[in-house]
């Protein structure tokens, strides 16, 4: 077990290193630099700015400087937000993204479990088809259109919920629903098919043959065995939700971290892009590791390799 853990951790570190390097080089071949402005800077001014951020050094030095920084826990300065460094920015915005992400995850689980169960229970009936239709809705609309629709209906027409900004529970309802819609749909589908799969397996047949009630079969046997595939996707899904979504944060004016995946690119704020990418990757790799550990805990048949 310990060997497995160490191996996986080393693997995770390699992934992080490759991701960091890849992003670094992709950024440096992307046209446009952080200090390209409409009002072009005079060369002597640009020289001082470049010297401040070591941008005048060869890329190899910049690269090693960056990696050394990361190892020491320093994510570097932000080229755009001059009063703060990347660590401050992540520390300010990640908690907001994380709370919204967890709300959205809760929302999608709360929605997908009943829908998936009902659909599986009434499989192939109109109820099933209706449930699937509802689920399909969640993945058939671009996020920003869904957000627009929710704002139009619930904020402007009905006046129930706040149209934007992050604060009390009221302000969290619409972004949670917008962010959670697609995962909810996805999870509903997944649960339904996982339950149907297990329903076809021998031990379920045996249970049925023993005369157990269908609901007991569904909850006791089918559901608990269907959790494995759900668990598998839950890892990466959580990592994605927790690091924030650009679209949702923009549409609802939420001060989260997801925005930087876009704005830091348009600002060419290299350290900030690298910072948020590393946070994302670390969370993703961590979540996957956790899922693998939970596996071997839940299902002894799957041995840690």
């Amino acid at each position: 077990m310990v060997r497995f853990l160490i191996k996986r951790l080393l693997h995770a570190l390699v992934v992080l290193w490759v991701v960091a390097s890849l992003t670094f080089f992709l950024l440096h071949i992307t046209p446009g630099g952080p200090f390209d402005r409409e009002r072009r800077l005079p060369p002597e001014v640009l020289a001082n700015v470049a010297a401040k951020y070591h941008l005048d050094e060869p890329w190899w030095n910049q690269y090693t400087r960056y990696l050394t920084g990361i190892v020491q826990g320093d994510l570097g300065p932000s080229y755009k937000y001059l009063d703060r460094n990347v660590r401050d920015i992540v520390a300010d915005t990640l908690p907001v993204s994380a709370s919204l992400g967890i709300f959205a995850l809760g929302f999608s689980l709360a929605l997908s479990f009943p829908v998936g169960l009902i659909a599986a229970y009434y499989r192939n009936s109109w109820t099933d088809r209706f449930c699937l239709f509802i689920a399909t809705l969640g993945i058939s609309v671009p996020t920003f259109i869904l957000g627009a629709l929710l704002i139009w209906l619930f904020s402007l027409q009905l006046g129930w919920f706040q149209a934007g900004r992050w604060g009390d529970i009221n302000s969290a309802v619409l972004p949670t629903a917008t962010l959670g819609a697609a995962p909810a749909a996805y999870l509903s589908y997944l649960l339904r098919s996982a339950i149907l799969d297990t329903l076809g397996e021998d031990f379920v047949r045996t249970a049925r043959a023993k005369g157990l009630k269908e609901t007991t079969v569904l909850f006791k046997h089918a559901l608990s065995n269907s959790l494995i595939p759900v668990l598998t996707v839950l890892g990466p899904l959580t990592a994605g939700l927790v690091t924030g979504s650009f679209v949702v944060e923009y549409v609802f004016a939420i001060p989260g971290m997801g925005r930087f995946f876009i704005t830091a690119v348009t600002d060419r704020d290299y350290p900030l892009i690298m910072g948020v990418t590393l946070v994302y990757t670390a969370l993703l790799v961590g979540a996957n590791l956790l899922v693998d550990l939970l596996y071997s805990f839940f299902d002894p048949r799957i041995k840690a390799q």
Partner: peptide, 18 residues
Amino acid sequence: MYMINEKTTALALYEQGR
């Protein structure tokens, strides 16, 4: 002073009295 990026969202907040 709020930091609302999207114009449509800002307008919606104005219309909501926020």
